[in-house]
Amino acid sequence: MELAALTAIHDQVKGLGATLIGISPQAPESRIRCDAPEPPFPLLFDAGAKLARRCRIAFAVSDELRPIYTAAGRRPLPGVHDNWLLPLPATYVVEWTGEVVFSHINTDYTNRLEPADIITVVAHLARRMDRERPHRVRRAASKSAARGDAASVNR
C-alpha cells in the first residue's frame, strides 16, 4: 500500500526534480506478488538490511512473530543466512549535499509519512535550490525536458 501511495505521487516528485526510491531487505527473487505492477521508481535490495543497520533503523523480528511471517510467505534466499532483520518504517528526504533534511521514523507500519507531506518537503527544496543553485536547476530542467521530448517521440 505504501508503494501504491508513492506511485501516486511519483510524477509530481519527479516534476519537482527529485527522485523516489524504495529500499527493502526482501530479495527481488523472493517477491510474492510477482504479478503486481512494478512501481515507476527504483526498488532497491538491501541484502541483510545492511543499509538499514547503518541508518540505525534495523531490528530483529521477535521470536513470537517469526512463524507468523513465515506462514505469510516470507522466504529468505536459499543459502543465505537469515538474520530476520527488518527496517523500521522510515522515510528520509536527502538533499543534494547528502544531508537528511527531513525524517519520519516509526515503530508502527501503519504510521507512515503522508505522501502529501513528501510533496511539501520536496517542493520546498526545489524552491530553495532554485535560489541557491540556479544553474544546476536549469540544467536539470532542460535535461528532463529533453527526456520528455524523447519519450513523446517514442510514443
Binding site: 527522485t19 529500499i23 512494478e38
Partner: peptide, 28 residues
C-alpha cells in the same frame, strides 16, 4: 534494483533531492 542494476545515492543526488522509503517486503 529489481533488474540487478547498481543504483548509487551519490549519482541520484546529482539530479536533485532523493526521497528514501524503507519498507519490509511485499509479504508484510
Amino acid at each position: 534494483d529489481t533488474r540487478a542494476r547498481a543504483v548509487a545515492l551519490a549519482r541520484l543526488l546529482l539530479r536533485g533531492p532523493v526521497v528514501v522509503s524503507f519498507y519490509r517486503g511485499d509479504w508484510a
